[in-house]
Write a protein that binds this DNA or RNA. Structure first.
Length: 421
DNA sequence: TCTGGGGTCCTATGCCGA
DNA sequence: TCTGTCGGCATAGGACCC
């Protein structure tokens, strides 16, 4: 048996914990660059504002209804997430952290009543963190997701829904009432295709023949059908596997024209990506860089290009990776465009313990380099990201993303600590 | 003026060698 | 020696998730 625990409107709820006056008011949290609405309070959802709607399109409705908007504050959300996850770990040793606000818990071997357990989870997280969670409990992950959806949308469940506690008639009714697009694994494109084939509701999908689904769609959707029928196909993964690729990309706060400013951004992103790489003790066998203009500024000339280069030897060294990235930039940069976004991807990741050398290696002593990178990581962890960096990453950073509405880091910065009067 | 970032997995395709 | 076929592999692109 599997439980899915999910924080309601996570980013918005985090903001509300530290500013209770936001309770009951329409609140949204914006993506990087204050661009799109990525978290909405129920009041905002009720206004018909969609996920990922651009903020600049919402100005009128925001003014009209007094919507309060925040920039994303990932330091705050990450810290709150850690608190929630460590509380949930007390309820089951089998925990798969699925995203910043969601986790699966394996309940096999936990003998007490699962609905009661769900209620206790709900109470404990609320009391200890101030965050509201919903719990779905079912024999498969897909059904647990479905139950979580019910727990969230239907007040009768009061935040906890266990599949096996519903009689067959209600189970069928729920599946008939909910659209197929709300199923975990069915996105926008699949919804259109399924609708064309006469599959509109979860019940329709469940009744479809799994083999036909496999041949007409994919093995992925076949698994979804089987999971909806209660047959587990997607395992709980309690240890997070190492990343297979690491990406760092950002949209700029304003368009960039010059190559050397792009180079600053690219250098900054490489440093960030390489930090993540070293944290999981991997090395990259290849690296890609991309730059592009804004597809939304249709009148501007458009350009988008990326190149992947294999490295002669896998590396986790910021200096070496930066050198390769700037080499790529030189090859893809074209003057005369207003660049809106750039990014760096580390690929072909492998353990950094057994890097294959070769005869023609040259350059810095790898041991010295490793301790240099290690020192940089320690200093930046201690004193803040970017304290120690390469000159190529620049000093002005006026290309940085907009974040005009960011809240204090209530839990991770001494100066921002809430004051109780 | 203003449209996110970071991942995974699967499938189609084309190339190569047996 | 030529041609056809098939499996393995790499790669690109598309779909999904939050």
């Amino acid at each position: 048996m599997i439980a899915l625990v999910d924080v309601n409107n996570f980013y918005v709820s985090c903001q509300r914990v530290f500013e209770p006056k936001l309770e009951g008011k329409p609140v949204i949290v914006l993506s990087n660059n204050d661009a799109c609405a990525v978290a909405r309070s129920n009041e905002v959802k009720a206004l018909g504002i969609k996920m990922a709607q651009p903020w600049h399109q919402l100005q009128d409705v925001a003014r009209q209804h007094g919507i309060i908007a925040f920039s994303s504050n990932y330091a705050l959300y990450a810290d709150m997430s850690n608190r929630v996850m460590s509380i949930l770990r007390r309820f089951s040793p089998d925990q798969e952290i699925y995203s910043i606000d969601e986790c699966f818990l394996g309940l096999d071997g936990i003998l007490r009543d699962h609905t009661e357990l769900g209620r206790e989870i709900h109470q404990t997280v609320l009391k200890w963190t101030g965050l509201p969670v919903c719990v779905g409990i079912a024999p498969t992950k897909t059904l647990a997701k479905f139950c979580n959806h019910l727990a969230k949308k239907r007040s009768q469940f009061a935040g906890v829904c266990e599949w096996s506690k519903q009689d067959e008639e209600s189970q069928l009714r729920f599946m008939q009432e909910i659209e197929v697009g709300d199923v975990w694994g069915v996105g926008r494109r699949l919804t259109v295709r399924l609708n064309e084939d006469g599959i509109y509701t979860v019940a329709d999908l469940l009744r479809a023949d799994p083999d036909t689904i496999r041949s007409r769609y994919s093995v992925v959707l076949q698994r979804t059908v089987l999971e909806l029928r209660g047959q587990p196909c997607i395992e709980l993964e309690d240890t997070a596997p190492d990343k297979q690729q690491i990406l760092c990309s950002r949209s700029f706060g304003q368009p960039i024209h010059s190559e050397h400013v792009l180079a600053e951004a690219i250098s900054t992103y490489v440093a960030r990506a390489a930090e993540k790489l070293r944290r999981q003790k991997s090395a990259a066998g290849a690296l890609a860089v991309f730059i592009r203009t804004s597809p939304f500024r249709e009148k501007d000339p458009q350009y988008s290009k990326h190149i992947v280069v294999p490295l002669s030897q896998a590396s986790d060294d910021t200096l070496q990776l930066t050198k390769a990235a700037l080499w790529i930039l030189k090859r893809i940069y074209r003057p005369g465009y207003a660049y809106a976004k750039a990014g760096v991807m580390l690929l072909d990741l492998q353990p950094n313990s057994g890097i294959q050398g070769h005869l023609f290696l040259q350059g810095a002593d790898p041991l010295k380099r490793a301790s240099l990178n290690d020192a940089m990581d320690r200093i930046n962890r201690r004193w803040g990201r970017g304290t120690l960096r390469l000159t190529s990453a620049g000093f002005n950073h006026d290309w940085k993303m907009r974040q005009n509405r960011v809240s204090p880091c209530w839990t991770t910065r001494w100066e921002d600590m809430p004051v109780v009067r």
